[in-house]
């Protein structure tokens, strides 16, 4: 385990070290809510941030396993391609925005717009999510073990949204679907991957696109 201390080394130097390593275990100390921590990693490193992080923590991750022992600001794991990011506290808005692959786990709550424009990654939130979550989400899965705020899944494409608690309201073109055996299998496997064994897959509801918006109408294909 190598220790990188933000009290003694500047942020860019720490990110540069992590971006150039190929393997190993790293711990970042004294994060103090700083932004853009452990971003742009490409190798299968294990990185632990020992405290709260600011905006875009673990952004653009590829292959690395990043654990954050605290809360994170906006845009944690935004545009993640692969690997995993595990937030032990709560996340602010736009967690996992545009993420294309990998797994984002949030033990606490996530703020507004969780999984906005999701493009294939999986997000598991043990707590609740804020309003406009999964807005325009295109593929991948969002699992919410708590409640969801207003306008869940507005303008959704192919992303599945699993919710165990209450949904305050659904966004435009989002509807509840019947839980198929395949959905249940995906959900169980995501809970397992997230290390959540005390919450069972039964009792979740699944939501998806009602496919009534412009792009789903074959008549509009003539515009091309």
């Amino acid at each position: 385990m190598k220790t990188l201390d933000l009290r003694t080394a500047p942020l860019r130097e720490i990110n540069r070290i992590l971006q150039n390593e190929h393997e190993g275990f790293y711990e970042i100390r004294n994060s103090s809510g700083q932004h853009a921590l452990a971003v742009g990693l490409t190798a299968p490193l294990s990185v632990t941030i020992d405290g709260h992080a600011g905006y875009y923590a673990a952004g653009m991750n590829q292959n690395a396993r990043i654990i954050i022992n605290g809360n994170v600001g906006q845009g944690v794991a935004e545009n993640m391609m692969s690997g995993s990011v595990h937030v032990k506290g709560c996340a602010s808005s736009s967690a996992g925005a545009t993420a294309q692959g990998g797994l984002l786990v949030i033990d606490g709550d996530a703020g507004a717009r969780c999984g906005i424009s999701l493009k294939g990654a999986n997000i598991v939130v043990r707590g609740s999510v804020g309003h406009m979550s999964a807005f325009m989400a295109q593929s991948g899965n969002l699992v919410i073990c708590g409640d969801a705020g207003d306008a869940l899944g507005d303008s959704l494409y192919e992303t599945r949204i699993f919710v165990k608690g209450k949904v305050r309201s659904l966004g435009a073109d989002c509807e509840e679907k019947e839980m198929t055996p395949q959905d249940l299998e995906i959900l169980s496997s995501l809970l397992n991957d997230a290390g959540i064994h005390d919450i069972s897959a039964s009792g979740f509801h699944v939501y998806g696109s009602a496919r009534t918006l412009y792009h789903f109408h074959v008549d509009n294909a003539s515009a091309y």
Partner: peptide, 22 residues
């Protein structure tokens, strides 16, 4: 506005930190 500004407050590591709801 950001947690950074709170990082030096006394005993902040034991504080209950939350994002106020809209």
């Amino acid at each position: 506005s950001e947690y950074r500004a709170l990082a030096e407050l006394p005993a902040i590591q034991n504080a209950k930190v939350l994002e106020p709801e809209p």
